[in-house]
């Protein structure tokens, strides 16, 4: 088994958001700024990494017929841990991400990796898979957030680079902008993939 390949496949070739189209809801909803995108990406990566590790570790003591509820319990636990920790130490980011923190639990990427990968593979490679997929997701959602913040608010990481009164393309920060930005990024990704592979 090629460890490097398992780690890097989530970056471009099997990018969970841009190629597999998983985890759409948070990628559209919270990406009004670069920092929100990054925060959501990191939170999801943590859950994905931990749940992949635990599922791979426990795969033999979980009977086949109850595996989905077992996975859900595991994932929901890590989501709640992230929820409580962010509420305590990053209250502003927690408020900004809002309901989409508990909703990490239904992010198809996480249950999908548990079901399709971690329950069939050893712990180390499952951890690499979780981390790689998580990073791929983080990069994608961070890109969406950056584009929307730069075009829609004229700032990057809350640092304004236009004057206070300058008009920005507000559309990008509003809901339609989310769909349009992600649509065009996925189109570019299609182009890139057809060139690369």
């Amino acid at each position: 088994m090629n460890y490097l390949k398992e780690f890097t496949k989530g970056f471009i070739k099997e990018n969970p958001l841009l190629v597999l189209a998983l985890g759409m809801c948070p990628s559209l909803a919270v990406t009004t700024s670069a920092i929100n995108g990054l925060g959501m990406g990191v939170a999801s990566t943590f859950v994905l990494f931990m749940s992949n590790m635990l599922v791979a570790l426990l795969k033999n003591v979980i009977p086949n017929k109850v595996r989905i509820p077992a996975f859900i319990v595991i994932i929901a636990t890590f989501v709640t841990i992230v929820d409580l920790t962010m509420n305590a130490f990053l209250p502003d980011l927690y408020k900004a991400l809002g309901i989409f923190i508990p909703l990490i639990v239904v992010n198809c990427i996480i249950l999908g990796r548990a079901e399709a990968f971690a329950q069939k593979n050893n712990v180390l490679v499952s951890m690499l898979d979780g981390l790689g997929m998580g990073l791929g997701f983080t990069m994608a959602i961070f890109t969406v957030g950056s584009i929307r913040e730069i075009l829609g608010n004229g700032s990057f990481f809350n640092v304004k680079f236009v004057t206070e009164d300058a008009s920005t393309v507000l559309l990008f920060i509003m809901p339609p902008g989310a769909f349009i930005t992600l649509g065009y990024i996925m189109m570019l990704m299609n182009k890139l993939k057809s060139k690369l592979y």
Binding site: P176, F179, G183, Y184, M187
Partner: peptide, 22 residues
């Protein structure tokens, strides 16, 4: 166009719908 088929065009259409709903 080929690169637009599937998700990209669907998302952009959804964007237009969302604009209308605003």
């Amino acid at each position: 166009p080929k690169a637009m088929r599937g998700f990209p065009i669907t998302l952009i259409t959804a964007g237009m719908l969302s604009l209308a709903f605003m």
